[in-house]
Write a protein that binds this DNA or RNA. Structure first.
Length: 587
RNA sequence: CGGGACGUGGCGCAGUCUGGUAGCGCACCUGCUUUGGGAGCAGGGGGUCGGAGGUUCGAAUCCUCUCGUCCCGACCA
C-alpha cells in the first residue's frame, strides 16, 4: 500500500482534549478521530488494527468450536421487558420509538436476542452445546465517556454466548473461553490478569474480568504475588492489618468503662480528628450514611480504610447512594463529620453495618493489641466525638465485608501481602445460568423427554480496548510500538527521496517482493521531508522499517525494528531475509 | 448526579480581567531554493470569536440563558 493512496492524517501536536497516552497517540498517528463525545471514527490505520485484532479473535473463537453470526443492534423493547432489564437498566440504554410509537432500544449487549433465537431454534439436548458469537456494535449512553477509545458510547465488541444442558456443560464452555481468551490476549501482545469480578447487571454466578495493567485503566485489582489470588477490588476479600501503629499511643485504644465525649470543634475528616485527638486513623471509626433503596443505613469502616459502595450494595441487595447532608442530619441528628454508631437518636431504627475489620477479636485470639479495642467515633452531636468506644459493647452492628482491598492487606487465601494494580478491562466472562433462558423460555428436551432450561454463559472482548491497551503498554516517547500481530502493517518502507528514480525503483520492487512473501507493506512514497517521514514511521509503529535512501544507488537499504536495536544495512536482495528475522524477534 | 475548566481560521494557542472592531505558531496554496531526523525566503487564501438574547455609541471581551467538549468524583459487562 502506497502512503499516497492511504489516508493517514498524522498530527504533530497532542490533541488538547486527550489525557491518556493511547488517546494522544491514536489521534496523532491518524488511527482515530472523535466525532462526538464517546463516538469515534476509525480511520484506515485504526481500522486495519481493528481488523487484525478481530482476525485473531475469530481464529481463536472458531478454534473452540464457536460459530459466528450477526445480530441486529436495534431491538424491540419487549424482549428487554421480558428479562426485566428494560426497567432495571435506566439511562445507560439508548431508547427510541419507531414511527408506530413502538418502544425500541439500541443494544448495549445481546443476551436477549441470542437467547430469543436459541429459544426458537434449539429444541433438543442433541442441539447442545452451542457457542455463538458475533463482532457487533454496542451502544451505551455512558455518563462520562473518557480516555479516547477506552470508554465510549458506541463500540465494537466480540460477544459470545454458550448454551448447555447443565452446569457441567457450562463449566466446559467457560473453560474453553478461558483458553481462547488467554491465546487471544497473548497473540495480541497485551499483558493481562484474569481476576474474579462482580457479575453486576449481567447477573449470574461466577464471573472473571481480563484486566490489562495500565495507568489509563479505570479498574483496580488486588493481586497476590505469592498464591495468585486476583480479584477486582470491588469484590476482593482481604485481611486488614491490625491497627498496630496505634499501639501504645495513649490515651487511644484503651477500653474505658464507657465512651467518653470529647469536643472536636470543626474537625470533620478522619485526618482532622486524628490529628486533633492524637489518635491514629486506624483507631477511628469512619461512619458513612447511605440511602439504600429509600432507607438510610450507616456503614462503618476503620478510619484508615475506604468503603467500597458496590460491596455495601451487594450486601444490602439494593442500590445505594451517599446521603445528602440533610438526610444525614435527619437520620443521626448531627452534622456530617460527627456521626457515629453510638448515641443515635432513639426510635430511628437506623441500620448499622460494620466492616469485618471492626469485629472484636475472639477472646484469647492472638493479637498485638490484646483486650478490647477502644475506638474514637462521631458522637452524633455536632462538634463532638466519643473515645473509648468498644464495638459489640457500646453498639451491636451487623458485620459485612465493606472495605476496599488496599495494597498491603493480607491475601485472603494465603495471608501474604496483596498488591493493587490499575488496569483496563479488555474482556470478561460470565456464568449466567438461567437468568435469560428462564424468562425467555429457552428450553430443550433432554434424553428423557423432560423440558430443561438451557444454562448459559456470556463472554465479551473489546477490540478497541485491546488496541488501546497495547498502545498503553508498548509505546515509547516517539510513538506506538505495535505488537506484531495487530500492527496496521508489518513492514514500513520509508523512501527518503520521493522523486529519486533509483529510490522509486528500489522501493517499488521491495514493496512488491515483500508483499509477495505475504507481508502487509506500507510504502511511504510521499513527497515529504525525510524527518517527517521517519517521525511518522515511529509514531505509527509498524514492527519493521526499511529505509530506501542514499544507499539505493549501490543496491543497499537499511532495516531496523521499531522496538529498538541496530539499524542494519543490507543488499536489496537480502532484505526479505532480514525483515523476517527482525519480525520474528518482535513480540 | 456533585465539583472544576474550556469553546477564537484545519490543529495548538494568545487576546477577555481593564469594551474600541482579531493575532501568533503549525498546517494549507503559489514560486524559487533545499532534501537522511518534523527546511528557508517571498507571496497568498481562510475566522458568524460555539449559539441566542441583553447592556453599550461600540462586545471575542460585560450580563443572562443555552449548546458542546474535557477533567476529578459518583456511576458503569
Amino acid at each position: 500500500m502506497r502512503a499516497t493512496a492511504l489516508f493517514m492524517p498524522t498530527v504533530k501536536e497532542d490533541p488538547a482534549d486527550a489525557e491518556a497516552v493511547s488517546h494522544k497517540l491514536m489521534v496523532r498517528g491518524g488511527f482515530v478521530r472523535q466525532f462526538a463525545s464517546g463516538i469515534y471514527i476509525m480511520l484506515p490505520l485504526g481500522w486495519r488494527v481493528m481488523q487484525r485484532i478481530c482476525g485473531v479473535i475469530r481464529e481463536e473463537m472458531d478454534g473452540i468450536g464457536a460459530v459466528e453470526m450477526s445480530m441486529p443492534t436495534m431491538h424491540p423493547a419487549d424482549v428487554w421487558q421480558a428479562t426485566g432489564r428494560y426497567e432495571s437498566i435506566g439511562q445507560e440504554m439508548f431508547r427510541l420509538q419507531d414511527r408506530g410509537g413502538r418502544d425500541m432500544v439500541l443494544a448495549m449487549t445481546h443476551e436477549e436476542v441470542f437467547t430469543w433465537l436459541a429459544s426458537r431454534e434449539l429444541r433438543s439436548y442433541r442441539d447442545l452445546p452451542q457457542i455463538w458469537y458475533q463482532l457487533q456494535l454496542k451502544f451505551r449512553d455512558e455518563p462520562r465517556p473518557k480516555g479516547g477509545v477506552l470508554r465510549v458510547r458506541e463500540f465494537l465488541m466480540k460477544d459470545s454466548y454458550s448454551f448447555d444442558i447443565d452446569e457441567a456443560g457450562l463449566d466446559k464452555s467457560y473453560e474453553k473461553h478461558i483458553g481462547a481468551y488467554d491465546r487471544i490476549f497473548a497473540r495480541c501482545g497485551v499483558d493481562i490478569y484474569r481476576v474474579e469480578s462482580d457479575s453486576g447487571f449481567m447477573g449470574g454466578a461466577q464471573a472473571h474480568e481480563y484486566i490489562a495493567p495500565s495507568a489509563a485503566g479505570e479498574d483496580r485489582i488486588a493481586l497476590c504475588p505469592s498464591c495468585g489470588y486476583a480479584a477486582n477490588v470491588e469484590l476482593a476479600r482481604s485481611v486488614a492489618l491490625p491497627p498496630a501503629e496505634a499501639v501504645g499511643a495513649a490515651p487511644t485504644g484503651e477500653a474505658t468503662d464507657a465512651p467518653r465525649e470529647v469536643g472536636t470543634p470543626g474537625r470533620r475528616t478522619i485526618e482532622e480528628v486524628s490529628t486533633y485527638l492524637g489518635i491514629a486513623p486506624s483507631l477511628l471509626i469512619k461512619a458513612l450514611v447511605y440511602v439504600a433503596g429509600d432507607r438510610p443505613v450507616m456503614a462503618l469502616v476503620r478510619g484508615d480504610h475506604s468503603l467500597h459502595e458496590s460491596k455495601l450494595a451487594r450486601y444490602l441487595k439494593t442500590e445505594v447512594r451517599a446521603a445528602q447532608a440533610e438526610e444525614v442530619r435527619a437520620a443521626t441528628g448531627a452534622e456530617v463529620g460527627f456521626v457515629g454508631p453510638v448515641g443515635l437518636p432513639a426510635g430511628t431504627g437506623l441500620r448499622v453495618v460494620a466492616d469485618e475489620s471492626l469485629r472484636p477479636a475472639p477472646v484469647g485470639a492472638e493479637s498485638p493489641w490484646p483486650g478490647p479495642r477502644g475506638y474514637a467515633a462521631g458522637a452524633n452531636k455536632t462538634d463532638a466525638h466519643l473515645v473509648g468506644v468498644v464495638v459489640g459493647r457500646d453498639f451491636q452492628p451487623e458485620y459485612a465485608d465493606l472495605r476496599e482491598a488496599q495494597e498491603g492487606d493480607g491475601c485472603p487465601q494465603c495471608g501474604r501481602t496483596l498488591i493493587v494494580e490499575q488496569g483496563i478491562e479488555v474482556g470478561n466472562i460470565f456464568k449466567l445460568g438461567t437468568k435469560y433462558s428462564m424468562p425467555l423460555g429457552a428450553t430443550v428436551l433432554d434424553e428423557t423427554g423432560r423440558e430443561r432450561t438451557m444454562i448459559m454463559g456470556s463472554y465479551g472482548i473489546g477490540p478497541a480496548r485491546i488496541a488501546a491497551a497495547a498502545v498503553e503498554q508498548r509505546s515509547d516517547d516517539r510513538g506506538i510500538v505495535w505488537p506484531k500481530a495487530i500492527a496496521p502493517f508489518d513492514v514500513h518502507i520509508v523512501q527518503v527521496q520521493a522523486k529519486d528514480q533509483v529510490q522509486i525503483e528500489v522501493a517499488a520492487s521491495l514493496h512488491d517482493s515483500l508483499a509477495a512473501e505475504g507481508w502487509e507493506v506500507l510504502w511511504d512514497d510521499r513527497d515529504e521531508r525525510p524527518g517527517s517521514k521517519f517521525a511518522d514511521a515511529e509514531l505509527i509503529g509498524c514492527p519493521v522499517r526499511v529505509t530506501v535512501g542514499k544507499g539505493a544507488s549501490l543496491g543497499m537499504v537499511e532495516v531496523e525494528a521499531r522496538r529498538g536495536g541496530d539499524r542494519l544495512e543490507v543488499a536489496v536482495g537480502e532484505c526479505g531475509v532480514l525483515v523476517r528475522r527482525l519480525w520474528e524477534a518482535c513480540e
